[in-house]
């Protein structure tokens, strides 16, 4: 197990290096740069700026420089947000995004899975139709509409929730719900269909034929098998949600890091884009590792170290 983990962590570092490399060179291939403006800056200033940030050096030198920083967790200065390093940006925004995302992820699992189970057990009943109607809405309606509706109804009309900022704890409710919409719907649909599939399996019939109580048939025999596809989805989902959403954070004026993904790109702020990409990739790779560990715990057929039992 330890050997497996070490192997996976080394692979993860290697993967991150590849991602960083590809992103680095792709970014430089895009026309324009961090100091390109609609109204062009004087050549002398651009030259001075390029010199300050080593952008006048050969590309390969810049690359080595960046990787050296990356290996010491130094993501470099932002070229556009003056006085801030990418580390500062992450340090100030990530906790907020991760807190909102963490609450959302937890609620998605806590609500989505039971709702999916109930829907599967009451297949084709009014409860099932209602849940699936909501879930279809949740998957199809974009989060900015959900966010706008929440603000309109609960902030503007009813005045129950603040319409922006998170200085008041109630301010978390809107962003959390808007962030959950899609994934909650997806998880409950996935749990439902997976559960329906598993309940048709022969081993469920065997359990019933052996007089096992319906409760145990569902929660012991069916659920464990049904959760495998759900876990596959939830892992990467958590990585995406924890790293914030540009749209939701923008609408609710939440100081998270979601907006830097977009701003970084429009500004050609090389280091910010690199930093966000590496951060998201790291989260993602970590969640996939967790998913793989969960698989081996749930399903004995999956063996991590590849050895025979």
């Amino acid at each position: 197990m330890t050997k497996y983990l070490i192997k996976r962590i080394l692979t993860a570092i290697f993967t991150l290096l590849i991602i960083a490399t590809v992103t680095f060179f792709l970014l430089r291939a895009i026309p324009g740069g961090p100091f390109t403006r609609e109204k062009a800056l004087p050549d002398a200033i651009i030259r001075a700026l390029n010199e300050k940030y080593n952008l006048d050096k050969p590309l390969f030198f810049q690359y080595l420089d960046y990787i050296k920083g990356l290996l010491t967790f130094n993501l470099g200065p932002s070229y556009r947000i003056l006085g801030f390093t990418v580390n500062d940006i992450i340090r100030s925004g990530l906790p907020t995004s991760a807190l909102i995302g963490g609450i959302a992820s937890a609620l998605i699992v806590i609500i989505g899975i039971p709702v999916g189970i109930i829907s599967a057990l009451k297949q084709n009943s009014p409860v099932d139709y209602f849940v699936m109607f909501l879930a279809t809405l949740g998957v199809t309606v974009p989060n900015f509409i959900i966010a706008t509706l929440i603000i309109y109804i609960f902030s503007t009309q009813l005045g129950w929730l603040p319409s922006n900022g998170i200085s008041n704890p109630l301010g978390y409710i809107g962003p959390v719900i808007a962030l959950m919409g899609y994934s909650l719907s997806f998880v409950s649909r996935l749990t439902r269909s997976s559960m329906l599939e598993v309940l048709r399996q022969d081993y469920v019939r065997t359990a019933r034929a052996n007089g096992i109580s319906e409760r145990k048939v569902i929660f012991k025999h069916a659920l464990k098998n049904a959760l495998i596809p759900v876990i596959t989805y939830v892992g990467p989902m958590v990585a995406a949600i924890l790293t914030g959403s540009f749209v939701v954070e923008k609408i609710f004026a939440v100081p998270g890091i979601g907006r830097y993904f977009v701003q970084g790109v429009t500004n050609r702020d090389y280091t910010v884009i690199m930093g966000m990409t590496v951060l998201y990739s790291a989260f993602y790779i970590f969640m996939i590792l967790l998913v793989d560990l969960a698989y081996s715990w749930i399903d004995p057929r999956i063996r991590l170290d590849g050895g025979a039992r």
Binding site: D202, Y203, H221
Partner: peptide, 13 residues
């Protein structure tokens, strides 16, 4: 039942 391959729950001993 007919199919012993699928009649045992794969995730329990």
């Amino acid at each position: 039942f007919q199919d012993p391959m699928t009649s045992l729950n794969p995730v329990y001993s």
